[in-house]
């Protein structure tokens, strides 16, 4: 995963409360056996006048030319609520977003963001939406800046470390391989019956 250090980008304002995962990626857009190919379906219900024909709605904020290439999304309260579908985060990341700044996130969505290298920042997005130009995010300093204006945000230590080092939880856990091996050795000794039934042991 790409480490997150700093980011300079314009921010797209989509400041509504309770933007749910089905709005972010409608279930009919999750057609294939893959995490990829989802960017096209991002916000499909809002982004297109006709989702099947992919005719863009010029009034939807993502389609406005001034936000081309923006990597920061501004949201409202309880952003990413609804189901646990991780496709919502995959779609945002594939589209090019690297940070979401919102009044608040659903806990599962927030966890999915961190797991996928998307920085979730809890901050009032309204002052940021008024900024003309780009925002500077600094994860180490936990700040968002626009010119002289500066906002601080909180993030848990583990989430910060994972994002900063570009680690996903698997990489983090693989650092504990010795402890996992030791646990398995002890368990094999104590509960051999649970291991001897596995197909490999029988082969």
């Amino acid at each position: 995963m790409r480490p997150f250090t700093t980011l300079r980008s314009k921010a797209v304002p989509l400041i509504q409360d309770n933007v749910d995962t089905d709005a972010i990626i409608p279930s009919r857009e999750m057609k294939s056996v893959s995490k990829d190919g989802l960017a096209d379906g991002l916000f499909a219900g809002w982004r297109y006048l006709d989702a099947a024909a992919r005719i863009p709605d010029p009034d939807f904020v993502l389609n406005k030319p001034q936000y081309d290439g923006a990597q920061i999304l501004l949201g409202g309260a309880n952003f990413g609520c609804g189901s646990s579908r991780e496709h919502a985060v995959w779609a945002l990341a594939e589209y090019g977003f690297r940070a979401v700044i919102a009044d608040g996130f659903s806990p599962i969505f927030r966890g999915n963001c961190v797991r996928n290298g998307l920085l979730p920042i809890v901050l009032d997005p309204r002052p940021l939406a008024g900024v003309d130009g780009e925002l500077d995010i600094d994860l180490a300093a936990q700040t968002v800046r626009a010119g002289d204006a500066i906002w601080h945000f909180d993030i848990d230590a583990e989430g910060k470390m994972m994002l900063a080092e570009g680690l996903d939880p698997i990489a983090l856990t693989l650092r504990l391989a010795a402890a996992i091996d030791a646990h398995e050795r002890a368990d094999r000794a104590a509960h051999a019956w649970a291991w001897n039934v596995l197909p490999e042991a029988r082969r």
Binding site: P169, L176, I180, E184
Partner: peptide
């Protein structure tokens, strides 16, 4: 569990 957690379980035989 979710999809990423399934990957985690497959890769490490553990979950956080």
């Amino acid at each position: 569990i979710g999809s990423s957690e399934a990957e985690h379980a497959l890769a490490t035989s553990t979950l956080r």
